[in-house]
């Protein structure tokens, strides 16, 4: 740097040029990386649409979405049952996973004694690193039998007796069902949501927390009125990450969901999801319409993910707007 300062002639010196070239190069590379992501995204959409078009041409987009028949023999395909299976199992996963993750993050940041924070935090992160096939096998060989023998009868006797929602829990306990898949998914996404929540909860300045405690707030009040409002964007990001994983999870779901192309009211009946259907059937799908229908399912999963992320974004913007409108 010393020899770049050569007095007041204003003539650029060699090193300075090299510097600006480096800048421009970096600028270019960074641009390319960013545009590259968009290009890949666009290319995926285009390829999926092209691949799926024979199916949409034959059945019609909305007809494909609203038919539950899936018959490779007659080549009649409809995506309703995997679509419903995907949405229901992911919804169960979030319903169970969200409160538990929130509790874990709350415990680590607010309640745990300092010596326990680290081990628990690390354990959660390790859980996130377990491959999904392990969850699937554990689900099939250990969890499903336990669930069928102990928990399902209990749920049938309690929730199954309730009006309206009772019908969801009345089927015979096989252990292999949409509900089981939802629970396995919940276990899989908890580490993701919990570790993101913990990280964002820790970004809240200690002064804010301490002031709140200082005016006599309980732990719950601090979390609910100080920590959460400050971090909800980040926490929501964690939930979306978890939901994204639940929607697209393939292997673990394939093991426990039962893989039946049938629509059932009961959550204890076997069903299937978009990802598990593709994983099961793609290798042996011969015939243009069959392959196209599987790709169409992929496109639909893509659209669902897109809609979910879009809705989350809109929700966050609304929350932010409301926050700003309120007097500080």
């Amino acid at each position: 740097m010393m020899n770049t300062v050569t007095g007041n002639t204003g003539v650029p010196v060699p090193n300075r040029i090299a510097g600006s070239l480096g800048d421009r190069l970096f600028h270019g590379v960074a641009w390319m990386a960013a545009v590259g992501v968009l290009l890949v995204l666009g290319a995926i959409i285009v390829m999926l649409t092209i691949g799926a078009s024979p199916a949409f041409e034959k059945f019609g987009f909305f007809n494909f979405l609203s038919t539950a028949e899936w018959n490779p023999v007659t080549e009649m395909f409809g995506g309703l049952s995997p679509l419903v299976g995907t949405l229901v199992s992911s919804a169960i996963a979030i319903l169970i996973g969200l409160p538990v993750s929130f509790g874990i993050a709350l415990f680590i940041t607010e309640m745990a004694p300092p010596w326990l924070k680290r081990p628990v935090g690390t354990a959660i992160e390790l859980l996130a690193a377990i491959p999904s096939i392990i969850y699937g096998m554990w689900g099939l060989f250990i969890f499903a039998p336990f669930f069928a023998d102990h928990i399902q009868p209990l749920l049938t006797d309690t929730l199954g007796e309730l009006p309206l929602i009772g019908a969801l829990f009345q089927d015979p306990p096989l252990g292999i069902s949409v509900f089981t898949a939802g629970i396995i998914l919940a276990i899989m996404i908890i580490p993701f949501i919990a570790s993101v929540m913990r990280d964002v909860f820790e970004t809240v300045p200690a002064e804010l927390r301490e002031s709140a405690y200082g005016v006599g707030s309980t732990t719950w009040e601090v979390v609910w009125n100080v920590v959460l409002p400050m971090t909800k964007v980040g926490a929501m990001g964690g939930v979306m990450l978890g939901l994204g994983r639940a929607l697209g999870e393939t292997m673990a779901v394939t093991f426990v969901i039962g893989n039946a192309h049938k629509l059932h009211l009961g959550l204890f009946e076997p069903g299937n999801s978009i990802a598990s259907t593709i994983a099961n059937e793609f290798t042996e799908a011969d015939g243009e319409v069959y392959t196209a229908s599987l790709i169409a399912l992929g496109l639909i999963l893509f659209i669902i993910t897109f809609i979910v992320l879009g809705l989350a974004k809109i929700m966050l913007l609304r929350m932010a707007a409301r926050q700003e409108g309120r007097p500080a």
Binding site: W70, V73, I176, F255, G258
Partner: peptide, 22 residues
């Protein structure tokens, strides 16, 4: 009908021989 994958009227599906066996 007859195919490598059919529309099963009943039951649950296991992946591979090992899936059915388990």
């Amino acid at each position: 009908g007859n195919a490598k994958a059919v529309s099963w009227p009943a039951g649950v599906g296991g992946k591979g021989n090992e899936g059915v066996a388990s």
